[in-house]
Design a protein around this nucleic acid. Structure first.
Length: 123
DNA sequence: CATATGACGACAA
DNA sequence: ATTGTCGCCATAT
């Protein structure tokens, strides 16, 4: 079988984690990286999202910077799209920022273990 | 191999 | 609250 490159598997773990973010919540790039088992991999999360295949249904809009800011340049196309999608699920965005204290995803241990994305460790 | 570039993050002023 | 710097790490050139 064609072996998946480590980078491919990494992206898949990231995508899986992002798909676990509940509607109405947001997570930081670093948070996703940490949960996906990639310490200091915030930038890799951004890279992985940039590589999304066409036609995907991943909730990419729920990923923002640790300070609650939309990562895209204010006013840009993708920026507006993200704000639109967030408001769509009742996440307030003001001044290009989201209140992390209010919307930050806080998965409990049970959820982290239960999700198939937690099956990374098993070789 | 040397640099430059990011959908980042932490921290000092 | 803002802004600049530096650290990080996979890719691109």
């Amino acid at each position: 079988m064609t072996e998946k490159s480590p980078m491919q598997k990494r992206n898949e773990r990231i995508w899986q984690t992002v798909s676990d973010i509940p509607q109405g919540n947001v997570a930081s790039y670093g948070q996703i990286a940490a949960i996906a088992g990639i310490p200091r991999g915030a930038r890799q999360v951004g890279y992985a999202l940039r590589q999304l295949p066409r036609g995907h249904t991943l909730p990419w809009h729920r990923v923002i910077t640790s300070s609650g800011r939309i990562a895209f340049a204010a006013g840009s196309r993708p920026y507006k799209e993200q704000v639109k999608r967030l408001k769509m699920e009742d996440v307030t965005v003001q001044g290009g920022k989201v209140d992390m204290r209010k919307y930050r995803w806080q998965p409990d241990l049970d959820e982290l273990l239960w999700k198939p994305s937690a099956a990374w460790d098993q070789r």
